[in-house]
Design a protein around this nucleic acid. Structure first.
Lengths: 373, 373
DNA sequence: TTGTAAGCGTTATCAC
DNA sequence: GTGATAACGCTTACAA
């Protein structure tokens, strides 16, 4: 059985036999801060009320930040003092139950270890925490089963909203429908075919930028290292690559397109595979920066010089890209901004229509990993 | 004002004027799944009870996973069918309020963009999600103010436990005391002087491993690139470096120790600084792999060959390290395991004593970035 | 300006 | 085997 945080012997459902007396007995006499009452209970609003000699309603009115309810200054001060003395923290669960909002947002991502996704999460967290809300992290490991379990968890936790990254995996959609029905706001980062608003970049266009740059340098044999096949991001980047070549009247050689996994190891293997070809490409487009790093390693190991022998371009512009040698030419995706915009969309006063879609721009960052063939 | 997810016009504190009748009217007649009642409320246990023609107690007994309360099979089945028909999800907030446990764990980290911390988070998430619990991500950006606000948020959310990473920043301790008082389990990853159990590695020893390796190759002029000064990790690695040199009777030259920030840019600047020295080091120890990447870039830009001219060693063994060229020799820190062990400690049946401390081992991974001077 | 009490959605206790 | 109901900790309508 999996480990769970236990109850710690906390008594359940105690009847409050004589509230008045019990609370009186609970009042601290030593002036020390204490967050727990003698019976082991955490300090509640009633304890503060008793301590301050007012009703719970008054305590609530003083301590509810949004409320500007009229309370006599002395009363107010007494409550604040009492609360501080007891180290009282209002129970957000109780508030949430009453208000129907939890102040919690879920973020569903394929892989937190990938700096690109980590940046997106950071963007979401920036915005969400700035408004005092919380982020629940859901790392799916690209496992649809786990994603599905997470949707259930988030639903039961009654999160106010969910940001879905890599919704590209079409198999996700069935698990997402209940979210809408529960009134949970949803924003998807990336292209998708779900009835939810989205923040995205145009990956077809991004790949076009990269491919055209390579073509302009004079390359015509351009290899492509893919990523997970069910990813729209990969499909779009591949489409952009193909379309651009076709538009120039160049044929698309299937041998030049090799499968990988968005990680360094996959890029390494892909790079080796391309090098083994009879007619080697003179340039390689890697579906993301992590696989580009693998490609660079494979080329170095094979004694191929970058960019003189082979040019390499990536996607994402992870912080590392500047510090590779040669520095990696790549198409920058505004990852943390994607996260921020998604969070902002969730926080809109009015729910935005499902067909809302905001497209952020990508930019080719030319560094040192490309040159004419 | 910061954006917040709004109430969506949900009515508050409706009085249930005539519960029986209202519920009867709510019963779906069309056989479709619906998660919300006609009045906009989310489906509750009472709605399911009415639909199944039983009491709420019975519904709870059927749907509570842990409970093995005796319920007549037909009754049980009816309840399950009704719940499925209505798309009912029990409200975890209500359960948590009653049980005093939220099934939520907070993770406080300095910087989610750093792959090392991202790995730790992944480890925590692995364990926590496996037991159906949730992770609340708290990214502090090394900002004590933000960390302090987060402690408050976590307290109000009544999380069951907190994993603190980089507790090294001693300024954190005052914010952490209330946690103990609230009965929140706390585990710290890394060395610290707080009254909480910890999972950690011996960074003095780790630095000794690296330094001794360089000494064994014949280096005596070894530069050191630091990280944030208030980090125990940095202090310990520096101490290990110093002690090892001293033990060999070598003097410690302050010029060889340069300040950086755990990031590539800092490592780059530090590398340049060391190269500018009259008597250059023949080897450089970087406080983490990210700064080692910066050092490698700085050396490459200055035309210094690694390892022939200068050897480089890092710490952490991030996934990238294998794919740098030269591949980076580094001291591996079992980051995701640190996260997993911390989460397991939180999940113990019995709270572990504050002085519990589990030390995981570090390992020197020899690759290609070092050779004799 | 303050107090009383209903109600949020559950589960545990007690009675039948 | 099932049902009524108090209680969890809070906010707010209403009464005073």
């Amino acid at each position: 059985m999996p480990a769970t945080v236990p109850n710690g012997g906390r008594p359940r459902l105690r009847r409050r036999s004589d509230p008045g007396k019990a609370l009186e007995a609970d009042a601290p006499r030593d002036g020390t801060r204490r967050r727990r009452q003698p019976d082991g209970r955490v300090v509640s609003i009633r304890d503060v009320a008793a301590e301050a000699g007012v009703s719970v309603a008054t305590v609530s009115r003083v301590l509810t930040p949004e409320s500007s309810y009229p309370v006599r200054p002395e009363t107010r001060e007494g409550v604040i003092k009492a609360a501080a003395r007891m180290g009282y923290r209002p129970n957000d669960l109780a508030r949430a139950l009453l208000q129907g909002r939890t102040g919690t947002v879920g973020v569903l991502i394929p892989d937190i270890s990938n700096p690109y996704y980590a940046e997106i999460v950071r963007g979401v967290e920036d915005v969400v925490s700035a408004s005092g809300q919380r982020v629940v992290l859901c790392n799916t490991n690209r496992d649809v089963e786990k994603a599905s379990r997470y949707m259930d968890t988030l639903l039961k936790a009654r999160v106010d909203g969910v940001v879905i990254v890599g919704g590209g995996s079409t198999r996700l959609s069935s698990f997402l429908r209940p979210l809408g029905a529960y009134g949970t706001r949803v924003v998807v980062i990336g292209r998708h075919d779900l009835p939810f608003p989205s923040i995205r970049v145009n990956n077809v266009e991004a790949a076009r930028q990269a491919t055209e740059y390579l073509l302009s340098l004079g390359h015509s044999m351009i290899g492509f290292i893919t990523g997970p096949a069910d990813s729209y991001t990969v499909q779009d980047r591949l489409a952009g690559y193909r379309e651009t070549l076709r538009a120039r009247g160049l044929s698309i050689r299937t041998r030049l397109i090799v499968k990988a996994d968005f990680e360094e190891a996959g890029g390494y293997a892909g790079g080796r595979q391309l090098l083994a070809l009879r007619d080697r490409p003179t340039a390689i487009l890697a579906a993301n920066d992590r696989s580009a790093v693998g490609v660079l390693a494979a080329l170095a190991d094979a004694g191929a010089k970058v960019p003189e022998d082979i040019s390499v371009v990536g996607f994402d512009d992870i912080p590392l890209a500047t510090f590779l040698r040669p520095a990696l030419t790549t198409v920058a995706i505004p990852s943390s901004q994607l996260g921020r915009e998604a969070a902002l969309l969730l926080g809109q006063e009015q729910a935005v229509p499902a067909n809302t879609s905001r497209e952020l721009t990508t930019q080719l960052i030319v560094r040192d990993s490309c040159c004419p063939p």
